[in-house]
């Protein structure tokens, strides 16, 4: 196991090192757009790492994670709109543009709806769970389409990026490194979490829920908390994407977006936490290169996905660490 562990550490170091070097490299090639592009991948990576917690460790295949992404983005968009024109949002509050207010709120709102969706869907499992989470995401998709006062189908422009004391979020480098730091923090927190007592419980629930019940655990409670944590991280990523594109629309909640997030997790290697970072990068690089090749790039991406699923089971990280089947383990050995 020691060998595996160190290989995974190398894989972790390598990808984070690479991501840290993106801005200087981009400047060296005089291509600032690269930073924007990689920044997008970073934000998706944050959401996907959060999704890996429940898919890879908790065994909850959520096909509706874009809902939380969108909820977070709309939280930022709606609060920002009111802050911009000074209109009343709710109870005399005119919204906010401060990241320290908006981003935690985005997480809270996402976690709140995560709790509601989770309470209903976690009582089922397997295919049922997949279908129900998908349907719930669709509910929120149509909700935002119908929200005509916030742009409805056309979406909503963010007039200003959020503000953070001492940082200029309009600066490409600053925003990039901020997102990078958040990704690191989320990854680190979740790495600790899956090796903690709580982590042990949700991994146990994935493997054998009945056994967990016989051992005195109520799986629903633990799964629900994990689901909410994952939703909150999705909400945070949503608030970041709203700042990144300065625009939110129901497209963020489209069902295919949920699929994309799942693809990122699997492509990178589920149950590894670092895998989704690889997955996000790989998917975006793949898309960019296919787009330059043909406008019908999805006709190539689709079969690639199928091949990955059929022949390449552990994802990129599984390949790098020599684990055909990515193991779902708490990080620490016993002793």
């Amino acid at each position: 196991m020691v060998k595996n562990f160190s290989r995974k550490s190398w894989a972790t170091l390598a990808i984070f090192g690479l991501l840290a070097l993106v801005p200087p490299i981009a400047h060296a090639f005089d291509n600032a757009f690269l930073i924007t592009m990689f920044n997008r991948a970073l934000i998706y990576a944050i959401a996907a790492v959060g999704l890996d917690l429940i898919i890879g460790f908790g065994g909850m295949v959520s096909f509706g994670h874009a809902a939380f992404f969108g909820i977070g983005a709309y939280t930022a968009g709606i609060l920002g709109t009111h802050a911009f024109d000074g209109s009343d949002f709710m109870f005399g509050w005119t919204g906010s543009n401060a990241a320290l207010v908006v981003w935690p709120l985005a997480m809270l709102v996402a976690a709140f709806f995560g709790a509601i969706i989770g309470l209903i869907s976690l009582r089922t499992s397997g295919v049922y769970f997949i279908m129900i989470t998908l349907a719930f995401a669709q509910l929120f998709y149509f909700f935002f389409v119908s929200l005509s006062q916030y742009g409805g189908e056309d979406g909503l422009s963010l007039w200003d990026r959020n503000t953070l004391p001492g940082l200029d979020l309009y600066d490409r480098n600053t925003f990039y490194y901020l997102c990078f730091a958040i990704l690191l923090a989320v990854w680190f927190f979740l790495s600790r979490l899956v090796a903690s007592r709580f982590g042990r419980v949700i991994i146990g629930c994935k493997q054998n829920e009945r056994r967990m019940r016989a051992l005195g655990y109520d799986p629903l409670l633990y799964k629900l908390v994990a689901f909410c944590i994952s939703a909150a991280i999705g909400g945070l990523a949503g608030a970041l994407i709203a700042n990144h594109s300065e625009f939110v629309s129901p497209g963020l909640l489209h069902w295919s977006r949920s699929g994309e997030l799942m693809v990122i997790v699997i492509l990178g290697g589920m149950g590894t936490l670092i895998g989704p970072v690889y997955g996000a990068l790989a998917l975006f690089l793949l898309e960019e290169s296919l787009v330059s090749f043909t406008e019908h790039w999805q006709v190539i991406l689709g079969p690639i996905l199928i091949l990955v699923v059929v022949f390449f089971r552990g994802g990129i990280v599984g390949f790098l660490t020599g684990n055909g089947k990515a193991s779902v383990k708490s990080g620490d050995d016993h002793g």
């Binding site: 699929g259 999805q298 199928i306």
Partner: peptide, 22 residues
């Protein structure tokens, strides 16, 4: 497992949707 099935058939969806627009 169902996750693999979802992913592979998601790939099929991308393929077919793009194919019909071609």
């Amino acid at each position: 497992d169902h996750l693999d099935q979802v992913l592979a058939t998601f790939g099929l969806i991308l393929f077919f949707n793009e194919m019909v627009s071609i």
